[in-house]
């Protein structure tokens, strides 16, 4: 597994998820700063959205991992 092109695929998938989750987290922080009383709703939705973005990245990682097996 180590040193194969799979590692590049996994890395690319993680970059995408990182940008996505970073955006979600940043915007959620902004929203909480604007409206501190809505913190509960914002947090729940933030986790939900982060989970959806993460799902796409995980599928990419698992497929990269599987395609590594000859």
């Amino acid at each position: 597994m180590f040193g194969s092109i799979t590692a590049i695929g996994m890395g690319l998938a993680v970059i995408g998820a990182g940008i996505g989750i970073g955006q979600i987290g940043g915007k959620a922080m902004e929203a909480i700063a604007r409206q501190p009383e809505a913190v509960g709703d914002i947090r729940a939705n933030m986790i939900l959205m982060a989970a959806l973005v993460e799902g796409a990245a995980l599928i990419a990682i698992v497929i990269a991992f599987l395609s590594n097996n000859p």
Partner: peptide
């Protein structure tokens, strides 16, 4: 995705 998220 539910499967993979928890598993991974």
């Amino acid at each position: 995705t539910l499967t993979l998220r928890l598993f991974a």
